[in-house]
Design a protein around this nucleic acid. Structure first.
Lengths: 326, 326
DNA sequence: AGCATGTGCGGAAACGTTTCCGCAAGAGCG
DNA sequence: CGCTCTTGCGGAAACGTTTCCGCACATGCT
């Protein structure tokens, strides 16, 4: 026997006022005397009243849900798991629901979701899903800049990867690396563009080798072989998870890290802390990134802010054994 | 200038029928002649009509959203990333939205979300969030059985981990392991209960060492040391990610895998395929698990099925280098 | 006192669906 | 022909909010 839901009218009757007043009291929008407001809130609490999201959505023309899109190629990367969690927490704190968007090349089902806003992680040039999402008539904030020429998302949350990469390169040089090999992703993503730029403009001797963002272990192996041809003193692997592959390959060949070769990752991960040796990396705080993206998007949705928003998330170098000989 | 949304009334006018007929045509619920139906669908398409989820929810008393809860302790595990993706895809295919639920000890904000159903991953004894979710008045399906004594979720999607673990143990024995050490989680979760049972009831010589489900690398190290005290021929690590830690620790000590010691993981992961040696594991198909959970839940929500649903997801042993000496 | 202004509250419309019911016309049947 | 049953469709209510507007009264000012 599903008890009929308690509506605003029930509360109004119980409190001896009109629904208008109840609404005003609970939303804080109209004019209500403080005493009446308190009484209504108490009564509402007692009745177990909780406003119908559907009715409110219908009236307000806002669904109370925001979508999060994580590119298919990177599902499984630890980074996005934590980003998602941060986003979900922030959303709930604002009373919004965070809807997970699968890669879906068709816009129609996405339209039926009626999202108030979108968060797109690491938009890549030519990603058909990103394309579709950009076409939806709602504000969008991207985690990392959108590399698409014409695109201008309403908000961007990003770390300064040029700076982050530079710090890591400086650290490697400071540990005695005269020449550094960098396994970097391509230019199809802002993340790739920035980390590459840092390598290009570095004061040190950095040689880049490209590895796909959605790499196969074999891709890392190939790139690693190419990188080692120049006999570098240190290797920096940028994509998430790539450094671990490299570490295994090196160890399988009998190369000692860090004695024979320094190894560092750009994207930090738990597995880098459990690897032996533990691997130096840059913590780019995915949880904070997710939370910031939601906060920015909510501001845009409720109209507290109109212009494009740019939020920066700080990065932290985590020095570990793989770059600390002796 | 946000163009007014096109409603069912607009379509009705354009097609020269009533809103009743349009609704009947689009939902397939009432009585409409085939010709009229086709015409209406064409007109709706042309107008770019897409039904308001809010209005439909209000009328139907269903929100069209289902919640997915992943325990905080395991966020970051690859397994859940793929499970989430499978769930999101299946949900969208049914026209539902998948809402990510953060660990949140308070029921109130969760109530405001108005979910039609819940998916809870790996419910653990004493998890306060699971407790809260169980109290919500909506059907719930769990991925893995709910170990809570009184609890009876409306549906369960699970693999047979007793069988899966047994297959893996048999494989190790078949590769020549006379004695096997198993690093297993505790009994607070059905997953732990089943994998332990398989160890207890195994035909082979299996010694269990407990490691927390939300382990710290040091926990693995401790458990590994304890396990190796008996000089086993093989080690099976059950929790996601744990085998990788073990592999690193062993290699750091100069133990050769698989020559000196066989190593296997229960939960498969990409990192096990890229490790050197590659690590044998059991693929428990998280994506299928997520999709099945959503399918079962949707059936329950739309009322196509009433009794408790039990779905089984098959497991596959992936034999790799770490258990293949010579 | 007369007037403008502000405060506290209620009536009722509107948001966009779905569905119950009813009506007219046609079909089938004796 | 008269009856019932079916088919195709429309009117209108209902889902639960929020908000525009208006009313009555109190307050402050000249």
């Amino acid at each position: 026997m599903p008890a009929r839901r308690v509506t605003i009218r029930d509360v109004a009757r119980a409190a001896g006022v009109s629904t208008t007043t109840v609404s005003a009291a609970l939303t804080g929008n109209g004019r209500v005397s403080p005493e009446t407001r308190d009484r209504i809130m108490r009564v509402a609490e007692e009745c177990g009243y909780v406003a119908s999201a559907a009715a409110r959505s219908l009236r307000l023309g806002r669904s109370g849900a925001i979508g999060l899109y994580v590119p298919d190629r990177t599902v499984g990367f630890e980074y996005y798991a934590h980003l998602s969690r941060g986003a979900a927490e922030a959303a709930l704190a604002h009373g919004f629901a965070l809807t997970l968007l699968p890669a879906w090349p068709d816009a129609a089902p996405l339209r039926t979701l009626h999202l108030d806003g979108l968060i797109v992680c690491d938009p890549a040039l030519g990603d058909p899903v990103a394309e579709v999402l950009r076409s939806l008539p709602v504000p969008m904030v991207t985690c990392e800049r959108d590399p698409e020429p014409g695109a201008s998302p309403a908000g961007v949350v990003a770390s300064d990867h040029v700076a982050g990469t530079t710090v890591l390169l400086d650290h490697l040089a400071g540990q005695g690396a005269a020449s550094i090999a960098a396994l970097v992703p391509g230019e199809e993503t802002s993340f790739g563009q920035e980390t590459r730029r840092a390598c290009r403009e570095s004061d040190h001797d950095v040689r880049m080798v490209e590895v796909p963002l959605a790499y196969d272990p074999d891709d890392i192996a190939r790139a690693l072989a190419e990188a080692r041809a120049d006999e570098p003193d240190a290797i920096m692997v940028v994509p998430d998870g790539g450094a671990l592959v490299a570490l295994h390959l090196l160890q399988a060949e009998g190369v000692r890290v860090p004695e024979d070769l320094l190894l560092a990752s750009y994207v930090d991960a738990l597995s880098l802390q459990v690897a032996r040796p533990t691997v130096t990396a840059v913590d780019i705080d995915p949880r904070a990134t997710g939370a910031s993206a939601v906060n920015a998007l909510v501001d845009l949705v409720v109209g507290e802010v109109s212009g494009p928003v740019l939020t920066s998330v700080p990065t932290h170098l985590r020095v570990r054994e793989s770059t600390s000989p002796a």
